[in-house]
Write a protein that binds this DNA or RNA. Structure first.
Length: 747
DNA sequence: TAATTAACTTAGCAGATTTCAA
DNA sequence: TTGAAATCTGCTAAGTTAATTA
């Protein structure tokens, strides 16, 4: 494995932690698989940033000692079974509580045979879920709904009394009986459906449509060729979309303007069409000013007015923002239909500026239970269709006109249906952990294969594993921005150097990935990989595919054979999570204070974000806020030296006077110095953290790639309040992990 | 078998809201 | 109390993957 520093595993071990299924017999907190098994010594080098200004995190050594030769992926089955037992145990503990819940809800978990077909079953792949539905649906119809996820967390209500009062009046009274959501529903303690159905009962109120167009007041004019011109409603509405974006770079781009103008003309009457032939002669500034003034006015509204709006939004949220799924009231993620506007693609999108049509009732498909109260379409309109498909999770869908793709309304991440899936995702990644050594050994072997397709597959997989590249589906040309992932890399996206900057076999990647975020990375690879790349590139044009015998479908089929549920993206999840765990182990020092520990956490998080190439535009106010912080630091330093001076003189004073009062003064001064020192350190840490974070986005990995149980365990281990790591939304999303992970959880 | 479609996850950004400091 | 900065949230585009269709 010499050349591969990304994955240099040495299996250190500590037998003591060796563990397997028998462990699960003990009563333990191991709600999840706890096996102190793998750890790896791994060095993930990286100087990868889309942008050269990035701080360099290369040379972060990610280290993790592996204890166990848990080589065989298939071995995880018994464990799952044990875990299932564990679950049972927990359930017993919770029995009294549950009994209560059941009664209240009239809801009981479906009776399930204790001996599941196989332990694997809890995390079965969707494929195994083919059984016909046989449960009695009526069990799932709510007799009384439990109110959870109610936005009204105690903390939530800032203007406490007021809101409450008003709500009583304004919001629909019944649901809002303002009970504390006594118990949050712990869906993770319940059985999962095994028949492939996503729900048994689903009821909701349908989507909230975009507000109808509100025509401009007559004094706000559009000018063509210098002359005012009254537009027809449709043409005017479309024009307002453009006018609202006047400040944006988009409106200066040729493609944007061209697309917009073309679609705009479609909205015009024939007279308008005849007259308006050149976008450059259009003057939207009055409209622009009008909207700007409006938004300004909105900011200037009185408190009462603002409150009124807030309450109205809350009312809509309460009415449309929740659904009833299998006896629980669950929050919907996006219950509003996307309003019309101009399409803003990312990067160099060929369709930017096109008109995103208004969605009408007759475009909308509703999905709900047959026996639920179906959502009512607005008066005088009809849904496109009402269907009852419980094999899917969406409540509402429509087809969007730019790409012709389907948009969905689905549940919030805090919901059972999303949470289960998320949990399952991390379990799959953990199964990969158990066999990743084997897989690595295999792809290394495959580099030598006589078959080109095998070699390509093996090299691609190596990149996906080592560099956390995305799979890289082919895309239709001209439909979207030209971005690539691993399988779709082209020759022009890399340079290879037998020797560069003192390193051998260097590959330099430079391409646009998802969202047209640049991926730039220079990385030494093993000789075999290098030779293979040379071969793949031979006799090819820059625009030719690097892996011409490979696509995501072939790759994933291969992965599927290596492990049930394994796909390319599992590697990203796995490598992200394992990196976090290793980095936390490495960076956290026990005697640091809380602030420093959190900095360590952020650094670990940052290592992952860099691995996954999660970038952000530096905040507009970055320089300024950095400056402000520096000013503060300087001031604090002055304050510190003052305090120190005072301490010194008080000490001198005490020496002379030798009375109690003087002694006390010394104590007080000492404390003051300490306090200021702490404050100073906090500021300095903050500055470091912010600087390092300039163009790295931590949120994406935190939300999508890092097994939350790792973070929860870390918090528990070091007595860090979980609020320091996860904000409210995140805590809701990861409630399952917060509840189940103990301080010794291992990914 | 390849192309297309459907479903769902992942992504960055912008505006809203909250927090902080003067 | 106010305004600026920090943080959160909603939005929706852009991916991945599996299923379906040609």
């Amino acid at each position: 494995m010499s050349g591969d520093n990304a994955h240099n595993h040495s299996q250190l071990d500590s037998g003591s932690r060796y563990n397997d299924s028998h462990k699960h017999k003990e009563k333990n907190k191991d709600k999840e698989h706890k096996h102190k098994d793998h750890k790896k010594d791994k060095e993930r080098e990286k100087s990868k940033h889309g942008n050269s200004e990035h701080k360099d995190f290369s040379d972060k050594k990610h280290r993790d000692k592996d204890k166990l030769k848990h080589k065989d992926g298939s071995s995880d089955k018994p464990r799952d079974k044990d875990k299932y037992k564990d679950k049972e145990k927990r359930k017993d503990e919770k029995k009294s509580l549950e009994g209560k819940i059941k009664k209240e809800n009239g809801f009981a978990s479906p009776p399930r045979i204790k001996s599941e077909p196989d332990g694997e079953d809890f995390y079965h792949s969707p494929k195994s879920l083919k059984r016909e539905r046989d449960d009695d649906e009526s069990d799932y119809k709510p007799k009384k709904i439990k109110v959870e996820n109610d936005r009204e967390d105690k903390k939530d209500i800032k203007p406490k009394k007021k809101t409450k009062n008003k709500k009583g009046e304004v919001a629909d009274g019944k649901k809002k009986a303002k009970k504390e959501p006594e118990e949050k529903w712990k869906w993770w303690e319940e059985e999962r459906s095994t028949d492939g159905s996503k729900w048994k009962f689903l009821e909701h109120k349908g989507p909230v449509f975009a507000a109808p167009y509100d025509p401009l007041p007559s004094n706000v004019k559009f000018y063509y060729d210098g002359k005012p011109m009254k537009l027809s409603t449709d043409a005017e509405e479309t024009a307002t979309f453009f006018s609202k974006m006047l400040e944006h770079d988009y409106t200066t781009k040729d493609i944007f303007r061209k697309n917009f103008f073309k679609d705009w003309r479609k909205e015009m009457t024939s007279e308008e069409k005849a007259k308006i032939t050149d976008l450059n002669k259009c003057n939207f500034t009055e409209m622009y000013e009008y909207f700007k003034a409006q938004s300004e006015a909105r900011k200037q509204m009185s408190k009462a007015e603002k409150l009124k709006i807030k309450e109205e939004n809350e009312r809509i949220l309460q009415e449309y923002g929740f659904c009833i799924m299998d006896n629980h009231r669950e929050r919907i993620a996006n219950f509003r239909i996307e309003p019309p506007g101009l399409f803003r693609g990312r990067g160099d999108h060929p369709k930017m500026g096109m008109l995103k049509r208004r969605i009408r009732t007759q475009d909308v498909i509703i999905n709900c239970s047959k026996d639920s109260k179906h959502p009512k379409p607005p008066p005088g309109t009809k849904w496109k269709e009402v269907r009852h498909d419980n094999k899917v999770t969406w409540l509402v869908s429509w087809t969007e006109n730019i790409q012709g793709s389907i948009k969905y309304i689905m549940l919030n991440p805090s919901s059972r249906i999303k949470g289960e899936k998320d949990w399952q995702k991390y379990e799959t990644a953990r199964r990969l952990k158990k066999i990743v050594d084997r897989i690595r050994a295999q792809y290394r072997e495959d580099w030598k294969s006589k078959e080109m397709r095998i070699r390509q597959r093996a090299v691609a997989l190596y990149f996906i594993d080592k560099l956390a590249l995305r799979a890289g589906n082919e895309k239709e040309e001209g439909e979207t921005a030209d971005t690539v992932g691993c399988c779709s890399l082209r020759v022009e996206h890399m340079n290879i150097y037998p020797e560069k900057d003192g390193q051998e076999y260097v590959v330099e990647f430079d391409f646009l990935g998802k969202d047209s975020i640049r991926y730039y990375n220079k990385v030494p690879v093993e000789k075999r990989v290098f030779k293979n790349l040379q071969l793949f590139m031979e006799n090819k044009q820059p625009e030719d595919d690097l892996f011409d015998r490979l696509n995501t479908s072939i790759l994933n089929k291969h992965l599927q054979e290596l492990m049930d549920g394994l796909t390319a993206k599992v590697f990203r999840t796995y490598n992200a999570s394992i990196t976090l765990q290793q980095q936390l182990n490495e960076l956290t020092s026990p005697d640091e204070n809380l602030v420093a520990k959190i900095l360590s956490y952020n650094r670990a998080n940052r290592a992952v974000a860099i691995l996954c190439n999660h970038q952000r535009a530096p905040p507009k106010t970055f320089e300024k806020s950095m400056q402000n912080l520096q000013t503060k630091i300087d001031a604090k330093k002055d304050q510190l030296s003052d305090a120190k001076r005072e301490l010194k003189s008080s000490k001198a004073d005490a020496k002379v006077r030798r009375d109690e009062k003087a002694k006390k003064t010394v104590e007080v001064k000492k404390k003051a110095v300490q306090r200021i020192e702490e404050q100073l350190m906090k500021l300095e840490v903050q500055a470091t953290d912010r600087e390092e974070n300039k163009q790295i986005a931590l949120g994406t990995s935190k939300l999508n790639y890092l097994d939350p149980r790792i973070s929860v365990a870390w918090c528990k281990k070091w007595s860090i309040p979980i609020e320091k790591i996860y904000n409210k939304t995140q805590r809701e999303k990861f409630a399952w992990a917060i509840d189940m992970a103990e301080d010794d959880y291992e990914f």
